[in-house]
């Protein structure tokens, strides 16, 4: 089957600074794929190139088998973008923001009306449709930003740090929304530097560091590469972690260490462990 997104050797230089040093990956249709990495790893650059905001220095990319750099209008019609900065028209109303987006993507007035109502109800913003965006809370603006990107029914949705700077309960609500969008068949590429976000949402994760992909797999496989159970150990040299296949092995080690007077904690291996293992640094 043709991949929804295929990226081959994408490179981007800004002057002498290299933002992307040749990354390649594929996303299957309906898959939620996460790019995880620290600030400056190249996550946003990747999304900007795939949505036509930035021109690549080298490399190729395809949506459903068609080259997006030689068919930019085709690519833009298929893609929906939720940028990192909330770029709504603050002086316009919620409804007007959706109307302009619909017209930009060539939708008819009637279709815009239908789709906007459906999405506003879906995101719990129907009652606020006549309000200026300026009057909305941060969480509501973020929801509006997401449904605006969905107006033209994109087959591929790009979410650039969708929950950055939001309260935990609003973040969980957005996670639910993103899962629902995926359940309707949309392919999603998400960037985040919140590891738990990638662990919760993603079917597959790519660890990005300094413009390179250092590991790419399902969260389960990435974690399984280390083991099942982790023992955190705090001593004079700071915090270190050891990994074990089974809980019994971990407990035996923990008992031994605590008898030696060390402070230990036993827990499940998480995606952060895998990230640290593959990149050698913290997010």
């Amino acid at each position: 089957m043709t991949a929804a997104v295929r990226v081959e050797g994408l490179v981007k230089h800004y002057g002498k600074i290299s933002a992307l040093s040749g990354i390649s990956f594929e996303i299957a249709e309906g898959e939620l794929f996460a790019l995880l990495g620290p600030n400056g790893a190249g996550k946003t650059t990747t999304i900007r190139i795939l949505t036509g905001l930035t021109r690549p220095t080298a490399g190729r990319a395809f949506f459903f088998g068609r080259d997006i750099f030689s068919s930019p209008l085709y690519a833009r019609r298929l893609a929906g973008l939720v940028p990192q900065a909330t770029n709504l028209d603050l002086e316009l109303t919620v409804w007007e923001n959706l109307l302009i987006h619909g017209l930009l993507f060539g939708m008819s007035r009637g279709r815009i009306r239908e789709r906007a109502e459906e999405l506003l109800r879906f995101a719990g913003l129907w009652e606020r449709r006549g309000d200026r965006v300026r009057a909305l809370s941060g969480g509501m603006r973020r929801r509006l930003l997401i449904i605006r990107a969905l107006m033209h029914e994109p087959r591929i949705l790009f979410l650039d740090e969708p929950t950055v700077g939001l309260d935990p309960h609003i973040r969980r609500r957005l996670w639910g929304l993103i899962k629902q969008i995926q359940a309707r068949g949309t392919t999603i590429l998400l960037t985040t530097h919140y590891i738990e976000e990638a662990e919760f949402l993603a079917d597959r994760v790519a660890f990005l560091e300094q413009g390179r992909i250092v590991a790419l797999d399902t969260p389960q496989n990435l974690m399984a590469a280390l083991g099942e159970v982790a023992v955190d150990l705090v001593d004079d040299e700071g915090l270190s972690t050891r990994y074990f296949r089974t809980r019994e092995e971990a407990e035996r080690e923990a008992v031994k260490l605590s008898r030696a007077g060390k402070s230990v904690t036993i827990r499940r291996v998480n995606l952060e462990d895998a990230f640290l293992h593959f990149t050698g640094r913290r997010v």
Partner: peptide, 13 residues
């Protein structure tokens, strides 16, 4: 400031 310009850049116009 608003970064709305990116909406136009990413639109098929």
């Amino acid at each position: 400031y608003l970064r709305i310009f990116e909406e136009f850049q990413a639109a098929p116009i």
